[in-house]
Simulated scan of single mutants.
Amino acid sequence: MVENTNYFNSLKSYIPNKSDLNTISENNFYELQKLATAFKDDNQWDNALLCLYKAKLVSIQENFSPELQYTTRLALFLQQAGLFEESKSELQALFNNVDNYVHILLSNQRTNQAILRRKYKAIYLENLFDKARLIYKREQQIEQATIFKDKRDEYRKQEKHFDEILSEQTDIELEEFYKEIEEDIIAEKLITPNKNIQSKNKISTKQETMEGLVGLIIIIIILWFIFK
């Protein structure tokens, strides 16, 4: 689990009312992202934020982990719309959600789960703190922005570390795989001739038995004619 730390203290969250949210009829996650961009370009920040909030709800309802560039868009848009406190609250929510995000992302992964979980957690947090750095820098909070830059670099190093572990593990697994194949081939070569020999022996034994029976029948017939 991620450490229980409040990096982004805020008492205000962005939660639009239901009637405003219903003005956005689109329900597809990626179409909502496009709409948000269009509203932003048209300087309609309220609608842009509604689209991103609804997209967030869609990802939760459909239980999927979107690409990282989409996860922090709401926080970025909130800051650009002049809602810095709400942006901080969104950043904290994202930080608290990292384990769930990675769990869903790797739900179909069957190998290297432990290492991949750590790797993708590092990637997620690297992205999160990079965007936090940008948001705080825009707000002229340079000291905090520097702290978040250091956190970003820390998780970037972790990501590279886990990549190296995965690379080494893959090489070992491949080596073992090819070793098993070679052992199977050798075993097959040793076993196959024996099977052929056994098969030939069986055929030879059957032929000898038949020849013996035929000879015995001929002798019986000859004796029958003699004594008759």
Results as ranks from 00 to 15, higher is better:
residue 66 P to K: 07
residue 67 E to I: 10
residue 67 E to P: 03
residue 67 E to G: 09
residue 67 E to S: 10
residue 68 L to E: 06
residue 68 L to N: 08
residue 68 L to P: 00
residue 70 Y to S: 09
residue 70 Y to D: 09
residue 74 L to N: 04
residue 74 L to Q: 02
residue 75 A to N: 04
residue 75 A to G: 03
residue 76 L to V: 08
residue 76 L to K: 11
residue 76 L to T: 09
residue 77 F to V: 06
residue 78 L to W: 04
residue 78 L to Y: 03
residue 78 L to S: 00
residue 79 Q to I: 04
residue 79 Q to C: 05
residue 79 Q to F: 09
residue 79 Q to D: 14
residue 79 Q to W: 03
residue 80 Q to E: 14
residue 80 Q to R: 08
residue 82 G to Y: 03
residue 83 L to R: 14
residue 83 L to Y: 13
residue 83 L to H: 13
residue 83 L to A: 12
residue 83 L to D: 11
residue 83 L to F: 12
residue 83 L to P: 10
residue 85 E to D: 15
residue 85 E to M: 10
residue 85 E to Q: 13
residue 86 E to W: 00
residue 86 E to D: 04
residue 86 E to K: 13
residue 87 S to R: 01
residue 87 S to E: 05
residue 88 K to F: 03
residue 88 K to W: 02
residue 88 K to I: 04
residue 89 S to F: 11
residue 89 S to D: 13
residue 89 S to H: 12
residue 91 L to Q: 03
residue 92 Q to S: 07
residue 93 A to S: 14
residue 93 A to K: 14
residue 94 L to M: 10
residue 94 L to W: 07
residue 94 L to T: 08
residue 94 L to A: 04
residue 94 L to E: 06
residue 94 L to S: 07
residue 94 L to K: 11
residue 96 N to Q: 11
residue 96 N to T: 07
residue 97 N to S: 15
residue 97 N to V: 01
residue 97 N to A: 14
residue 98 V to T: 14
residue 99 D to Q: 10
residue 99 D to K: 06
residue 99 D to T: 06
residue 99 D to I: 04
residue 100 N to R: 12
residue 100 N to V: 01
residue 101 Y to A: 09
residue 101 Y to M: 04
residue 101 Y to S: 08
residue 101 Y to C: 08
residue 102 V to G: 04
residue 102 V to E: 05
residue 103 H to Q: 15
residue 103 H to M: 14
residue 103 H to Y: 14
residue 104 I to H: 00
residue 104 I to Y: 02
residue 104 I to F: 08
residue 105 L to N: 02
residue 105 L to H: 09
residue 106 L to A: 05
residue 106 L to T: 02
residue 106 L to M: 06
residue 107 S to E: 15
residue 107 S to L: 11
residue 107 S to P: 09
residue 109 Q to K: 11
residue 109 Q to M: 08
residue 110 R to D: 12
residue 112 N to A: 15
residue 112 N to R: 15
residue 112 N to W: 12
residue 112 N to Q: 14
residue 113 Q to I: 15
residue 113 Q to D: 10
residue 114 A to V: 14
residue 114 A to G: 07
residue 115 I to Y: 09
residue 115 I to S: 11
residue 116 L to M: 13
residue 116 L to C: 01
residue 117 R to Y: 12
residue 117 R to A: 09
residue 117 R to C: 08
residue 118 R to D: 14
residue 118 R to H: 13
residue 119 K to W: 07
residue 119 K to M: 15
residue 119 K to T: 00
residue 119 K to E: 07
residue 119 K to C: 05
residue 119 K to G: 03
residue 119 K to Q: 15
residue 120 Y to G: 00
residue 121 K to H: 07
residue 122 A to C: 02
residue 123 I to C: 06
residue 124 Y to H: 11
residue 125 L to S: 02
residue 125 L to A: 01
residue 126 E to Y: 05
residue 126 E to F: 03
